[in-house]
Amino acid sequence: MSSLAHSENKKLGLHRPILKGKVNFPLCLAPMVGLTHVALRESMREYLPADAFTIWPTEMLNSRRIPGEDLEKTPETLRAPTETGLVPQILGNEETEIAESVKRLIEWGAEGIDINMGCPVQKALKHNYGVALMGDPAYAAEVVRMTVKNSSVPVSVKLRAVGSTKEFDELLSFVMGLRNSGASWVCLHPRTAAQKRRGWADWEQIKQLHKAVDFPVIGNGDVQTVEDAVLMLQETGCDMAMAGRGLAARPWMLWQLGEELGLANPLGKENQKAPRTPQEEGAEYGRFLLKFIERCRFYFGEDLALRKVRFYVRTTHVWLDFGNALTGVCAKARTIDEMLIAVAKFFEATVEMCPRTELRQ
């Protein structure tokens, strides 16, 4: 580990090396369709403690399409020249397509490859990838084997839970098949495919899995605040906590966790404190959104940027008081300049952010 080898950091995750030991910060962003693109990643990095290194996802990438796409122009694979720790997530089950996709993504800058075995949408099920692979352990292990065979960087797997802790032996057997095929780590979202976003994530499965295996386990599910992230790390013993919409809505969780661990502030925020109160977080959301809008325009152009921002706000507004009004403000804007003016005006008033929403993560 680097200069971040802090005693508290060791207690909170990072028990086993991730990404060849480069990762030294125990919180990361989950891959999300329509959200985890370059504009969001770059905007969020401003809250990462100085010298911290974590993994960063792309949106889900279809291995059937990657070989024929221009990765420098396709919105889902745009990247900033300075981005590090990129671990793109792929859907796939055919070796020829996976091999070509992995080759191109490594040339593009991938430092790891993540295989999605957690997507429950019908389109993925139809093609026998995503969570469908969890129904066929031997086939799932083969997908990992063929990916590892064609990769010079670590390969990980993001998967869903089994139905209950009583079925843990089934989950463990499945994960060991992935491990034996060369997976470097797994991320467990302990909510079944049938649950989708309903019900609470069963963190006990993360705890049991981490105890039972000898390689890194990342925990995912119901992390909406920095307190949730710390609790997951403490209760489950997992190596990292992964958060999706909650971290997208509250990217300064990275900064807050850095303060909890005694790490150096993010660059440019050396003499500041991370926002903590509902009012401070509401104001920070506004500042973040304005920068995010500008970055979306820079990377995607006017029309696509408008759609990307509206989708972000529709996804994250649930943590804001009167968030529905903000979605209306963004929907009415016909240009990015109009949107910037309207959003700035919206946040002239005090806006509070609530810690949690019933929308599951």
Results as ranks from 00 to 15, higher is better:
Ser3Arg: 12
Ser3Pro: 00
Leu4Ser: 12
Glu8Cys: 04
Arg16Pro: 00
Gly34Asp: 11
Ser43His: 03
Ala50Asp: 13
Trp56Leu: 10
Glu59Gln: 14
Glu59His: 08
Asn62Lys: 03
Arg65Lys: 14
Glu69Gly: 00
Pro75His: 10
Ala80Asp: 15
Pro81His: 11
Pro81Met: 13
Pro81Phe: 12
Glu83Ser: 12
Leu86Tyr: 01
Gln89Trp: 06
Ile90Arg: 08
Glu100Ile: 04
Ser101Thr: 14
Arg104Asn: 02
Ile106Thr: 13
Ile106Cys: 10
Asp114Asn: 14
Met117Asn: 01
Gly118Ile: 04
Lys126His: 03
Tyr129Lys: 00
Gly130Met: 01
Gly130Pro: 07
Leu133Asp: 09
Asp136Phe: 12
Pro137Arg: 11
Tyr139Arg: 15
Arg145Asp: 03
Thr147Gly: 02
Thr147Ser: 12
Lys149Glu: 11
Ser151Gly: 06
Leu159Tyr: 10
Leu159Ile: 12
Thr165Ile: 15
Gly182His: 08
Gly182Ser: 07
Ala183Ser: 12
Val186His: 11
Leu188Arg: 05
His189Glu: 05
Ala194Ile: 13
Ala194Glu: 15
Glu204His: 11
Lys211Arg: 14
Ala212Gln: 10
Pro216Thr: 06
Pro216Asp: 05
Val217Gln: 04
Ile218His: 00
Gly219Gln: 06
Gly221Tyr: 10
Gly221Ile: 07
Val223Tyr: 05
Val226Ile: 14
Val226Tyr: 07
Ala229Gln: 04
Leu231Trp: 13
Met232His: 08
Leu233Cys: 07
Gly237Asp: 08
Gly244Ser: 11
Gly244Pro: 10
Ala249Tyr: 09
Glu259Asn: 04
Leu263Asn: 06
Asn265Glu: 10
Pro266Cys: 06
Gln272Asn: 04
Gln272Val: 04
Pro275His: 02
Pro278Asn: 08
Glu280Ile: 06
Ala283Met: 14
Leu289Gly: 03
Arg295Met: 13
Cys296Gly: 05
Phe300Cys: 05
Phe300Pro: 02
Phe300Tyr: 15
Leu306Trp: 07
Val313Ala: 08
Trp319Gly: 00
Leu320Pro: 03
Leu320Ala: 05
Phe322Ala: 13
Phe322Gln: 07
Gly323Phe: 07
Gly323Trp: 05
Asn324His: 09
Leu326Asn: 03
Thr327Trp: 07
Val329Met: 10
Ala331Val: 00
Lys332Gly: 06
Arg334Phe: 03
Thr335Cys: 06
Asp337Phe: 01
Phe347Val: 01
Val351Phe: 01
Glu352Phe: 01
Met353Lys: 10
